[in-house]
Design a protein around this nucleic acid. Sequence first.
RNA 1: GUGGAAUUAGCUCAGUUGGUUAGAGUGCCAGAUUGUGGCUCUGGAGGUCGUGGGUUCGAUUCCCAUAUUCCACCCCA
Length: 417
Amino acid sequence: MTIKAPKGTRDVLPAETPAWQYVEQKYRSVCARFNFQEIRIPTFEQTELFQRGVGDTTDIVQKEMYTFNDKGGRSMTLRPEGTAGVVRAYLENGLSSEPSPQKLYYILNNFRYEKMGKGRYREFNQMGCELFGSVESTADAEVISLLFLFFRELGLREINLKINSIGCPKCRPEYLELLRDYFRSHLNDLCDNCQDRFERNPMRILDCKDDAENAIVKNAPLQIDHLCPECQEHFDNLCNELDNLGFAYEIDGHIVRGLDYYTRTVFEFVSNNVGTQGTICGGGRYDGLIEELGGQATPAVGFALGVERLLMELNSQSVKLPSVVGPDIYLVSFPDTVNQAAKICFDLRTLNITAESNVTARSFKAQMKYADRIGAKYIVVLGEDELKSKMVKLKRMSDSREIKLRLADLANYIKEN
RNA sequence: GUGGAAUUAGCUCAGUUGGUUAGAGUGCCAGAUUGUGGCUCUGGAGGUCGUGGGUUCGAUUCCCAUAUUCCACCCCA
């Protein structure tokens, strides 16, 4: 093999697809009960959408985007995340004129040109939700409670919600000044990376793991302690609503998030097990993004959940996930009966039974072996005698028990057992 | 982006102090006389020893580069 999958991409093979389908189906089911509707959007967008939507100062836009010029010379980018595209679709299609709030969910792949690591891929999958049109903290609680129900139904344990508030355009500038003033006198005590961040985005210093044990960072003022009255009330309300719903959470003033568009609420679901890639889901409120992208000022809140990481976490917690299941029945045939077997097999499939008949030149014994290997629940041998008498012996593979029945009764028997 | 480790059959891995046709287990395919799988036995297919250079009479083995994967940082899903 000379051609390999590109770096950072991976194949999901048949052994794994049942687990993927199960998780996606469960997600759709929970979203449906919250009355979120699915939206599907293009895989690539005009580059400018992400520059403006995700934010020019973010790592994503500065160095991680898959950007190319199409044949018309337009700059296009493979989406690095879902929200910007969903907002674009929301505006472009006039969903802002549909009943508000609009509640949308998506399951899609994203692309970021990053260095590889466990749980981090260049093409990765996210399941997300966006709720447009409510400033109320009840909307924040709504999307968070959707996640709690989803995790609960999957049987996921030991996953912790961390929440924070990073203020609004009213209180953040004041806080940033306060933060810069604080760090200015301690610049030499910070790591190189953080010295860069000082000018660009001083809030990120709080998130630095190098300096996590650094007393300077530990004691730095946090936005959550310097909220304006409106933001404070919003955050307090959210906490009350989460308490009311019975959800455990931890207030963590160091959660900052990597995207520029967040305001007020930010949150993460973090795993204890997966180590450095412990963030399974991240989200928050983005009250300024829609206006930033040319729409009328519209508050919104949402999240994105990493499917690969979720599956890793489910596996590390030994949560049972579906695996490949064999067909209900395999029809063994002979060269002179193979065509009639194929016809009977087709009829069974029409009746909603998972069936397989021989499509090789295999011997009788080899067919038996194959039926066993693929996990067929039953086999039936279709030879001249059976076809003539229309009576067959149905063999259950698990215990080798055979029962005799009319060929015409085969479908019903299988359905009922 | 930084540091470290790994790369030999589909999979998990041995191995050659540099020397003719490179191994095991498992999986795959087939056989062990008549139409019944799982156990056992036998046989077969499958590898330019990640790729490209270099040293050498000779490299899968030594050296360099490069790619990919993993681990720890960074960041995030």
